[in-house]
């Protein structure tokens, strides 16, 4: 199969993928493709199956949860080099728990989650690297979610 050099260059530019060998990039490139989203286009919807993990290259995509009484609530916005849809590579694959929509015209890398997992299973070193990076993304999101829960701005600064 032809190797898309341009795609590999894109992959290598993602800090998340640093330290991965060229050989593995070539393998990942086999099941990675570029994806353009127009403003307001939906990447995936709540309830969809979890097929892909994405890296934003350009633009901005919002992760939304729809609440019947409150409308669409944006809980996170991903910008360039942010990962979206990380739960697709965790062992328990559910369905999408949120909707993701492009806020502006955006470009993403979409990586086949099942094939990435298979590659990780077959190459434990690479698997460890990828999973450490995924855990770091999750830790960041969890921290952010916790801080959102803290609702910093709830209390005002001191005064008489």
């Amino acid at each position: 199969m032809d190797i898309d050099r341009k795609l590999i260059d894109r992959l290598r530019a993602v800090p998340w993928f640093q330290e991965i060998s060229l050989e593995h990039f070539e393998a990942i490139a086999q099941f990675t493709r570029m994806l353009d989203l127009a403003k307001d286009e939906i990447l995936f919807r709540e309830g969809d199956s979890e097929d892909y993990i994405y890296v934003v290259l350009k633009g901005r995509v919002a992760i939304e949860v729809n609440s019947p009484d409150r409308g669409k609530l944006r809980i996170f916005t991903a910008e360039a080099l942010d990962v979206v849809g990380w739960s697709a590579v965790t062992p328990v694959v559910r369905q999408r728990t949120a909707t993701t929509r492009a806020v502006v015209d955006s470009t993403l890398l979409s990586i086949d989650a099942a094939k990435l997992q298979q590659l990780c299973d077959d190459n434990c070193d690479l698997g460890y690297l990828i999973m450490s990076r995924v855990s770091s993304v999750i830790a960041g999101r969890l921290m952010g979610a916790r801080m959102q829960l803290l609702d910093f701005y709830g209390k005002q600064d001191c005064e008489e």
Binding site: K155, Q156, D157, C158, E159, E160
Partner: peptide
């Protein structure tokens, strides 16, 4: 005391 309630 803080303005918005509570104290240090």
């Amino acid at each position: 005391a803080h303005a918005g309630g509570g104290c240090s």
